[in-house]
Amino acid sequence: MTDQGPGRDDKTPRTARGERTRRGLLAAAAQEFGEKGFHEGSISGITRRAGCALGSFYTYFDSKDDIFRALVADMSGQVRDYVSPRIAQARDGIDAERIGLLSFLEFARSHKELYRIIDESEFVDAAAYRAHYENTAARMATRLARAAERGDVRPDVEEVHAWAIMGMNVFLGLRYGVWDDSRPAEEIAAIANALIEKGIGRPQ
């Protein structure tokens, strides 16, 4: 582990103020690692950005590795919490994938540090990296299965389709969310959704 501090088994915040401090540290870590990367980022940089003492850091995290691992899980959760309520408003299963990509593009454009942090996690914490994508694909597979039950998409959709759509979304987010966000997100989502509809849409 890196920058190990005094450990404590239960680091769950016990008060609302404690939760705010922990959230502030995670937000500061996103800035620190997003700008500098994991290896160049530091605990002192995180606490300086968060405006808190070093001791406060060790109240909630054991090390730089620990907060990075928590950050990957937190950012994955933020994507889920941003996208899921919007998908719930979809007209049908195909429209749900359009809204899913559109929402992801919006999130990526306002959290451009997401890609650097997730990509680095493959080498810093492979389990967290894998969990991020496996959990995302599992949600998509469940969504597609429900769409198939309703007759919105082909009845033979499966996990492979979920991973294929997720892979497309990941690279569209990189190209049109992080590298260049000048093209309307609605346009990107519509073009990609046409591919999905032709690929897994309900047979006419």
Rank of each mutant, 00 (worst) to 15 (best):
G167E: 13
M140E: 12
R150F: 03
R139Q: 11
G55N: 12
D125T: 01
T59H: 14
D125M: 02
V124G: 11
A28F: 08
G34E: 13
D152L: 02
E40H: 08
E19M: 09
A126Q: 15
G41S: 02
P155V: 12
A27C: 07
W163E: 12
D156A: 00
N169V: 09
E122Q: 15
E32P: 02
E19C: 02
V153D: 04
E134K: 00
R8S: 15
M75Q: 15
G5E: 11
A194E: 15
L25N: 10
M140R: 12
S63C: 03
P6G: 11
G24W: 05
I46G: 10
A90N: 01
R146Q: 15
V79C: 07
G199T: 00
E106R: 02
A73T: 13
P203K: 00
G5V: 07
T2M: 07
T47E: 08
E113S: 11
F104D: 12
R146W: 04
A148P: 04
S42C: 09
G37S: 03
A185R: 05
D66A: 04
T15Q: 10
T47K: 02
A148Y: 08
Q89T: 15
I43H: 05
K36N: 14
D3K: 00
A27E: 13
D65E: 14
F68L: 02
G199F: 01
V160M: 12
G151H: 00
F107W: 13
R14K: 14
W163M: 03
D119R: 08
A131K: 12
F104R: 10
V178M: 12
A138P: 00
W163H: 15
I94N: 00
T47V: 15
P6M: 04
E113Y: 13
G177C: 02
E113T: 06
R49G: 11
S121Q: 08
Y133T: 09
E186T: 14
E32F: 03
R143Q: 12
R98H: 10
